[in-house]
């Protein structure tokens, strides 16, 4: 038994409670989503009739399997509303992630190049907004962007525009809100890799004749790719399923999948269709989730 082993047994014992908790409240619920996505809509409360009841045992299960309903999924692929909202979610997520990278990279790069004692402060300054409520931050933008809000007032005073511009309920407002909310998630992993980078590697590059621009593209950028991947996944995955920001800032003519799900659930009370939408969304997110899980594990568990 090695010293590590001596600690391993009590440590595993410690993990039992959180393990059970996550199985019960994270894993099992997905089973219910799957089950209900295969159910029929009912008007009753809760608004679905289950295809099978677990308590009825194996016979009922096999009977139920025979008449599983894929109606909800058929609806998802036949109705333009759903397909369009999927496509829109993907477009919005890809576009936002690219914008975030373009904005976040220079900031993280600037932070990593600050003198050591300023880096901590800059880091703090980037994290603090992340700690403040994100709903409040979106609300703050509504304040600024509304018809008679600060932005239009400034533009009018400076005679840049002659009449108030409609900012709210547009895609620009939504992108602004997304970028604003997710910026720290992009900056921090980028900063983490950039600041860990060995300064002598860059010096070696310039010593070997690389111009600063070449040194950046040939050395710094390739070395920061793990940070880019982490930042991109950390933003992309939740943005695909984002609900609050598009709901508050974008117009209502085209919906993201999160909004569609919400609408089906709360307004149409169609739980099975909402569940089917959730399952479809989850399937879409499996590849990036797996990638993200691997990255996260490598980062947190070191060389193991």
């Amino acid at each position: 038994m090695s010293a590590r082993r001596i600690f391993a047994r009590p440590a595993r014992l410690a993990a039992v409670a959180p393990y059970l908790w996550m199985v019960l409240f994270f894993l099992v619920p997905f089973g219910f989503v799957l089950k209900i996505s295969l159910s029929q809509t009912a008007i009753a409360q809760p608004p679905y009739t289950p295809v099978f009841d677990v308590t009825e045992g194996r016979q009922a299960l096999t009977a139920a399997l025979a008449q599983l309903s894929f109606d909800n999924f058929k609806l998802l692929v036949s109705d333009d509303l759903y397909i369009l909202s999927y496509l829109r979610s993907l477009t919005v997520a890809v576009t936002s992630t690219l914008i975030l990278l373009l904005i976040g990279y220079p900031i993280a790069y600037g932070m990593a190049r600050l003198p050591q004692r300023w880096q901590g402060i800059a880091m703090m300054l980037v994290i603090v907004p992340f700690w403040t409520s994100f709903l409040i931050r979106i609300y703050a933008w509504i304040n600024i962007l509304q018809h008679d809000g600060l932005l239009n007032q400034i533009l009018l005073t400076l005679h840049i525009v002659s009449a108030p511009v409609v900012w709210l309920s547009t895609d620009s407002a939504m992108y602004l809100g997304i970028v604003y909310s997710y910026l720290p998630f992009m900056i921090l992993p980028l900063y983490a890799t950039l600041s860990r980078m060995d300064a002598s590697v860059l010096e070696a590059a310039s010593d070997l004749g690389a111009s600063p621009r070449q040194a950046f593209w040939l050395v710094t950028f390739p070395l920061s790719l793990p940070g880019v991947a982490a930042g991109a996944l950390l933003c992309f995955i939740p943005i695909v399923g984002e609900f609050v920001i598009p709901d508050l800032l974008a117009g209502s003519n085209s919906l993201m999948i999160g909004q569609t799900l919400w609408l089906e659930f709360f307004t149409n009370k169609d739980w099975p269709v909402a569940s089917a939408a959730a399952v479809a969304l989850l399937l879409l997110l499996v590849p990036p989730l797996v990638l993200y899980d691997r990255l996260q594990r490598r980062q947190l568990e070191g060389g193991r």
């Binding site: 590590r4 082993r5 600690f7 391993a8 440590a11 595993r12 410690a14 993990a15 959180p18 393990y19 996550m22 199985v23 994270f26 894993l27 989503v33 996944l233 950390l234 995955i237 939740p238 695909v240 399923g241 984002e242 609900f243 999160g258 799900l261 919400w262 959730a278 969304l281 989850l282 997110l285 989730l289 993200y292 899980d293 996260q296 594990r297 947190l300 568990e301």
Partner: peptide, 28 residues
């Protein structure tokens, strides 16, 4: 458990369950 438990059966599932909610869309 994760930092000191070394390798144990179900570890991958455990860490997966713990890491994915960080990015999981809230609607789901």
């Amino acid at each position: 458990g994760l930092a000191r438990g070394e390798r144990f059966r179900g570890r991958a599932l455990f860490s997966g369950m713990l890491y994915s909610p960080l990015v999981m869309p809230e609607v789901i």
